[in-house]
Amino acid sequence: MKLIDSIDKWLDDTGEKLGKKTIRYNPDLIGAVLMFGLSVAFLLMMPSQIKLTETSTINARTFPRLVFMIVLVLSVLLFFKEIAKIVLKKGSASRELNLLVEVRALIIFVFIAMYYLLLEPIGFIASSIVFGICMTAYFRVRKWYYYAIVAACAIAVGLVFQYVLHVRLP
C-alpha cells in the first residue's frame, strides 16, 4: 500500500504542475487551416481515387467535389473572418488547453488504443479485463471490489455475446 500511496503522491504533484500550464490557441484559425488543408488534399487525390466510367456531367466525382469545394470556401471565409476580428480587435475566439486535461485524455486514448490492439492477440474478454482495470486505476480507485465488478462485467459481456447471441468475438 505504501507503493500505491507514493505513486498517488507523485501523480498529484505532477498533476498540479501540469494543471498550471496552459496553452492558448485560436480554434477558428487552426480549424480553418486544418479544413483548408484537408479539402485541398482530398481534391488533389480525387482523380486517382475515383475513376470515371461515365461520360455524363453529373458523375461519381460530382458530390465529393462539391462537398470539398464548400469546405474549401468556408474554411477560407472562417480564416479571414477570424483575422478580421483579430485586426479590428473585436474579440477573437480563444480557447485554453489545460495540459493536465490533455495528458489525461491522451492516457485514456492510449488505453483505448491498447484495448483495440490487444483484441486479436489475447481475445475480447482478456483485453476487456485489462482495459477495465487500467481505466478503473486511472480514476485512482483503491477499493478492490470496483476492479472485480469491472472484470466481472467484461467476462459477462463476452460470454453473453458469444453463447447467447452467437457473435464470434475475437
Binding site: I125, I155, P170
Partner: peptide, 20 residues
C-alpha cells in the same frame, strides 16, 4: 496473490477467445 489471480483470469478468459 492479486497478480497471480489476475494472470489466472487472463489465461482463463483467453481460452474463451474465438481463434480460428
Amino acid at each position: 496473490v492479486l497478480c497471480v489471480v489476475f494472470f489466472a483470469l487472463l489465461t482463463i478468459s483467453s481460452a474463451f477467445s474465438g481463434g480460428s
